[in-house]
Amino acid sequence: MSNTSENPNPSSSSAKITLKTSDNELFEVEEAVAMKFCTVKQYFEDEKDNDVAARGSSTVIPLPNVHSAVLARLISYCKKLPQSNAVADNHEEEETKKKERKQYGTPGDLVDLISAANYLDFKEGLEFFNQALADHIQNKSVEYVRKFFGIKGDFEPHEEEKYREEYAWAFEGVDED
């Protein structure tokens, strides 16, 4: 990443792009970071094509679907983006990754991050936060999941009863919490 030979012009790596969030906050981010967001990249390239602004620093890219609090977290995630999102080879690695994913807060936070990552077409982020949310649901009971997401069960009691009977084996051994 820090290989300078790949990047003969060091000033271009520090080029900044300004992003404007839904609550009108301005974020000045490095081009390399901003280009992770395909939506931004597309916008940026279109601008270039139109020759309106060849320099990123003079462009403000509006992100009307992203709140500043969420964007700040996405950018900080981007900066410490792991080298690869490949499936962990062993359990220790997997555990480390799991812990890392846990730092991104409540399911509500994650849903916001996922929505924003989806809007920005930020693939690594989407992969990471989707997995983080999945971690929260794994092995949890139906009741827990409902409470967790504030969902009301809308099956008739006899329908649910029948289903639970049929798949009783899947309902054994869930985590208690």
């Binding site: 794994q138 099956f155 869930v174």
Partner: peptide, 21 residues
């Protein structure tokens, strides 16, 4: 996106999620 999230879960959890709503 919801499908992508569910697809990361073990089959037992998926069968339970089916029962949520």
């Amino acid at each position: 996106i919801i499908m992508d999230i569910f697809s990361r879960l073990p089959i037992t959890t998926i069968l339970q999620c089916k029962c949520v709503c």
